[in-house]
Nucleic acid binder design. Sequence first.
DNA 1: GATTCTATATATAAATC
DNA 2: TGATTTATATATAGAAT
Lengths: 170, 170
Amino acid sequence: MGRRKIQIAKVKDPNTRQITFSKRRTGLFKKANELSIMCGAKIAIVVFSPGNKPYSFSHPGVHLVAAEFLQQDLTNHLQRGPSFDVYKNHYFNLQNLDLMRQLAEEESKRAMLDEAIDHGKGTQLSELQKLLTSLADINSKVKSEIEAAETMILFSQEGVEFPAATREEN
Amino acid sequence: MGRRKIQIAKVKDPNTRQITFSKRRTGLFKKANELSIMCGAKIAIVVFSPGNKPYSFSHPGVHLVAAEFLQQDLTNHLQRGPSFDVYKNHYFNLQNLDLMRQLAEEESKRAMLDEAIDHGKGTQLSELQKLLTSLADINSKVKSEIEAAETMILFSQEGVEFPAATREEN
DNA sequence: GATTCTATATATAAATC
DNA sequence: TGATTTATATATAGAAT
């Protein structure tokens, strides 16, 4: 793939290693982007550079993808049949999704905060207040979901919807 | 890269899309593996197939990489300066982490029961528990940072203790 | 769903700007 | 230092299992 064939082994020279990282990270994210577009696949990547700087790529967003991953992770585990423990798991599951949603909100909130700071306007505070209001709103909505779920005997896998997709790359 | 040049757009035919996904996911994970080896980079990938089945690749482990990412994510938030609202938002986030910690403890008990009943087959739950432990660890660290800041006084939450979580390599 | 077989399109190691 | 160039190694589209 380059002028010479190389072995897949740790690149010794720190400088070369950083160059390799930079190029291959770019390539990896490009591939991930193509995969998500061509297959409509949700995907999240987090990688740390040799200098330990974090880079992430995700569609529709790291936290949302992570949330779905956790949900399925748990759901798989729930298929053991009805029991007291299973009930607890369901409750647990919903709270995790709630947490992830809040993290997702945190993401968009941060984006808005960045914008507010960039523009250096006095609107910053009111924007933040709006966001906090939305957070509280979402929080109470999800809590209602949880309460409703408590009345359920067992667990359907449906009911998890995610906000509109966004694409991010740092 | 194949017999014909293609456009990067959603593959219409469901069957072809699944084939494309399978091939490209394999390629992506291979690239990720090479990157982690050549650059000693920590990396985590989670991706969902068109059929919504989750696949993940990671070195040294999805949850550990995700945890480190979240930690830096939160740390970055804190570096935005002594803004009342910003800290307030962080605190909001921290409450979630604390909730996760509490849930982790409850789940831990169940995990042990599971282990006893279903010897050696509770791997998924065990993985989840690792994640939650990591998050609790992050919570503890970030909480310390915040408490160091003067602006945090208003929001410090007394009586909340965190276990001295330990990080493990996979 | 995943894999194999090939012809081609792409990614990228080294070199260079 | 990074961006760009270029020769080559690799990934993968299409077809078939």
